[in-house]
Simulated assay, not measured.
Amino acid sequence: MKLGKRLQTLHDVVTEDYQHIWDCCCDHGQLGAQFLHSSQAHIHFVDVVPALIAKVKLDLARFFPEAETRYSLYTQDVAKLPLAQYSGRQLVIIAGVGGDLTAELMTSLCYNLRDEVDFLLCPVHHHYTLRQTLQSLPLKLIHESLIEENRRIYEVLYLTSGKTGTTITPLGEAIWQQGTLSKHYLEKTLDHYARVAKGKPEAQAILSAYQHLTL
C-alpha cells in the first residue's frame, strides 16, 4: 500500500516499538494499515463516523485477511479512547483534523492518562493555539518537523507524556531549521495572520510573535 508523502512521513517518524497504535481521524485508515504491515503492534482504528469505520473494516478484510486478530475497530469519540484498558507502550496518532479539535482531544486524553503514552500529531491548521494548549499539558517533545504535500505545509509533532523529551515551544524550533521549506512556511504563516489580524485584533500578538522569528 503506497502512502502519500504526508502519511509516509508520519509513518517514518515513528522509530519506537509499540504494543498498541491508535489511528484516530486519519485518512481512511491508510496509516494504521501501513503499521499493520510494518510493525508487530495491535492497531486500533477509531472514528466517530460509522460509515468511515465500515469502509476501513472492508478494506482490512480485503487486504489483510490473515491479520484479523491484530486490529480492532471503534466507532466512538477519540476523546474517550480506552487507553487505560491496555498495557505496554502506546502511540496515539491524530492527523488530518484542525488544530482546535486536536487541542480539545489532547486535553481530554491527557486528563485521563494513567500510564506513559506517546502522541503523533499532524493538524491541518491553528498550530499556534494548539501549541499553547500542548504547553499546558504534561507533555514533552520528541520530534518536530515540517512536511509539504499538495502545496500545503504541515507541522508534525511527536510527543510523549513520559519524562524524556524537550519543552514544547509556542512557535517551534526545529521546524525553522529546514531551509527553503521553513522560509516558505514562515511567509505563508505571516500572510495568514496578517489577514486574520485585520478582522481580529487579538491575532496581532500571534502575528508579532512570528514576525520576530529569525531563520
Rank of each mutant, 00 (worst) to 15 (best):
R89E: 11
T107I: 11
S87D: 15
K80I: 08
R114Q: 14
A51S: 12
K80E: 09
R114W: 09
R131K: 09
R114V: 10
T102S: 05
A79L: 06
V124P: 01
Y128G: 03
G96R: 01
P123E: 01
A95M: 05
T75I: 09
Y71A: 01
P82H: 07
L130M: 07
L83F: 05
C110Y: 04
V97N: 02
H125A: 10
P82F: 07
D77Y: 06
L73E: 07
L81C: 05
T102G: 04
S136W: 08
C110H: 06
K140M: 06
R131Q: 03
A54S: 12
N112S: 11
S72W: 11
C110P: 02
S108A: 15
G98V: 04
F64G: 02
D115W: 14
R70H: 08
A54R: 11
A95F: 00
A103Y: 01
A79S: 13
F119G: 01
V49S: 10
Q85M: 14
P138R: 07
D118Q: 01
A61P: 06
Q90Y: 07
T75E: 12
L121P: 00
T69W: 12
M106P: 01
K57E: 11
F63H: 14
H126K: 15
A51R: 15
H125W: 15
P50K: 14
F63M: 15
D115A: 13
T102W: 04
Q135N: 15
L134N: 02
L109C: 05
F63D: 14
S108Q: 10
L121T: 00
T69N: 14
N112W: 10
S108H: 09
K80S: 11
V49I: 14
H126D: 11
R89K: 10
R62E: 12
Q90P: 05
I93F: 03
A95V: 01
F63S: 09
L139W: 03
F119V: 01
D100A: 14
P65G: 04
A54V: 09
V49L: 13
A103D: 05
L101W: 06
L137Q: 06
S108D: 07
L120Y: 00
T129Y: 08
I53D: 05
H125F: 08
T133N: 03
H125P: 04
E104D: 12
P123F: 03
L83Y: 05
Q135A: 09
T133D: 09
Q132W: 08
Q90H: 05
D77G: 05
P65C: 07
P65K: 04
